[in-house]
Design a protein around this nucleic acid. Structure first.
Lengths: 241, 241
DNA sequence: GAGATGCTTCGGTTACGATCGAAGTATGAA
DNA sequence: TTCATACTTCGATCGTAACCGAAGCATCTC
C-alpha cells in the first residue's frame, strides 16, 4: 500500500510486553538462555520460545547454541542503539513503568547500556574526560585527543587496538535517566571492561545495574572527578523545541 | 515487574499497520487532517479517529484545531528522529514492504525527511558542502565553518538567525534508502525551504517525494556538484560489525 | 434556521495473537 | 540405557483490539 521500510513489523515486535521485557533484559549485554529470558519476561518457557523465534526472525536477536543451552543476545549494537533510542524517547514522554522500587537508585547511579557504562557514573566519566581535555566535543560527535590517548594508555586502555575495529571509537549515547550524554563506542566498552578487570566493579545478577566496590568507587571518583552539574552547562532538553 | 522506560507502549503504538501508515504519512512534515490520514492508512474515518486519539495520548502526535478541520502533525522533531531511526533499522534488515512501484525512484531521488531533504539529492548536497569546506565532519557530528556561513549567506540563508533556535544547526541523519548521511537540523530545514521559496522544487501531493523543476534541478546540481560515489569513501554499513 | 462537512462516540462483530498444557526432540549426566 | 534438563512444536483457549455501521456533536455555508 505504501512505500518505504516496514516500521510496523519491528514496532509490533517491540510492542508486546513480554518481548519488550526480553529485549530490555538483553540490553544488559550478556547472553541469556531461553529459560532465563522466560523468567525475565514473566511467561512460561513455551511462550518465551515462541517470542524468541519471532524476535530472531525479525533480526533483533542472535542465538548461539552451546550444549543443551541456547544463548540469546541482541543481534548487534545497532539493535542496542535502536532500543536505547526508544527508551530515551519513552522516558522523555514520561512513559515510565513507574515502580520506584529499591532497585531504581542503583540503576540511576550506574548501569550497563548494552556494553558500556551509563547512569550518573557514565555521565560523570564523560564529563570528566571532556574537562580533562581527553575528549573533544564537536556538535554531536566525540573525538579522542592525542593527550587523551596517552592518558587512557596510562590507565591500561590500548587505544590503537580499538581503532582497528570497524566500530566507532567514541560515540555519545543519550541517557534516559540522566538525559545527558555518556560515552559509547568501542572506547566506552573498553573502559567498562577495564573497570571489571581491575575489580573496581562487577555486574549484578539479573539486573542492568553495576555494583562498585568501596575501593573501586573511590578510585573511579578520583579518576573522574567532575561532579554531575559541573562542567558544561548543557541545556535541558525541552519537550517542545 | 521491571524497571525502566516502557518501550512496549510506544512499540505497540508504532506496531499497528494503520498507525504506522499514519506516522509515515506525517513524516512528510506537513499537517494532515483526520480524513486524509484515514485515506493514507487505508481505514475508515472512525477507525482512524481512534488511532489518532491513541497516538496523541501516547505523545507521538500533536493536533491543531482549525475551523472544522483537525490537523495532525508529529509532536516534535524528536518523534521524527525516532521514526527515521526505526526506518533506517528496518531498511537495513531488509524489512521492506517491497512494492517496487513507479513512485519508488522518485522517493530515492529526493524526498522529505520530516522537514529536510533526503534521498540521492540530500546525500549529494551534504557531500558537496563538505567537499567545498562549508561543513566539517567530526566523527558523527557536523560543524558549519566560517567559510560555509558566508557561502550559505550568499545563497540566501540567514545562519545567525538559525543559531538563535534551540535546535541544533547541523545534524547528520542516516538515510534508509542511501544508507549515507544527509543534512538535518535547522540548517537542513532552512536549505529545503530556500529551494521551495526559489521555486526550484515543490512537494508532491500525498507523497514524501520532492519534485524539482528542470531549471531548479539544473541550479541545484550546479550548486552541489559532487556526485554520489565521489567524495569521502564512506565504508558500507556492515550487517554484523 | 436547514443542510453539508468533518470528526467523535457507541455497540457489536471479528480476527489475530498471546498464552499455556501436553507431547515431542535434543543434549548431557548417571 | 535410563533419566534429567533444555527447549520446541502442537493444539486449544481466551482476551484484546482493530474494525465498521450507525448515530451523535461541532462547525461552516447558505
Amino acid at each position: 500500500m505504501k512505500e518505504g521500510p516496514d516500521i510496523a513489523q519491528i514496532g509490533s515486535l517491540i510492542g508486546d510486553p513480554a518481548r519488550a521485557n526480553i529485549l530490555t533484559a538483553l540490553m544488559g549485554g550478556r547472553a541469556l538462555t531461553a529459560t532465563e529470558l522466560a523468567a525475565a519476561a514473566g511467561v512460561t518457557l513455551q511462550t518465551a520460545s515462541a517470542h524468541l523465534a519471532k524476535l530472531e526472525a525479525g533480526g533483533l536477536l542472535a542465538q548461539r547454541k552451546q550444549g543443551r543451552h541456547r544463548y540469546f543476545t541482541l543481534a548487534d549494537d545497532r539493535v542496542g542503539k535502536l532500543l536505547e533510542g526508544i527508551m530515551g524517547f519513552a522516558a522523555s514522554r514520561g512513559h515510565l513503568r513507574h515502580r520506584p522500587g529499591p532497585k531504581e537508585p542503583a540503576l540511576r547511579k550506574a548501569r550497563i547500556c548494552y556494553d558500556h557504562l551509563a547512569g550518573d557514573y557514565g555521565v560523570r566519566m564523560l564529563d570528566s574526560l571532556v574537562e580533562a581535555g581527553a575528549i573533544s566535543v564537536m556538535g554531536e560527535g566525540l573525538n579522542l585527543t592525542a593527550q587523551g590517548e596517552k592518558h587512557l594508555g596510562s590507565i591500561g586502555i590500548d587505544v590503537s587496538g580499538l581503532r582497528s575495529s570497524r566500530r566507532p571509537l567514541c560515540r555519545s549515547c543519550l541517557d534516559w535517566s540522566e538525559r545527558r550524554a555518556h560515552l559509547a563506542g568501542s572506547l566506552g566498552k573498553a573502559l567498562l571492561s577495564n573497570f571489571f578487570d581491575k575489580g573496581w566493579a562487577r555486574r549484578t545478577e539479573n539486573s542492568r545495574s553495576i555494583f562498585f566496590t568501596p575501593e573501586g568507587e573511590r578510585r573511579f571518583l578520583a579518576l573522574f572527578p567532575i561532579e554531575i552539574g559541573d562542567g558544561k552547562p548543557e541545556p535541558e532538553l525541552s519537550e517542545k523545541p
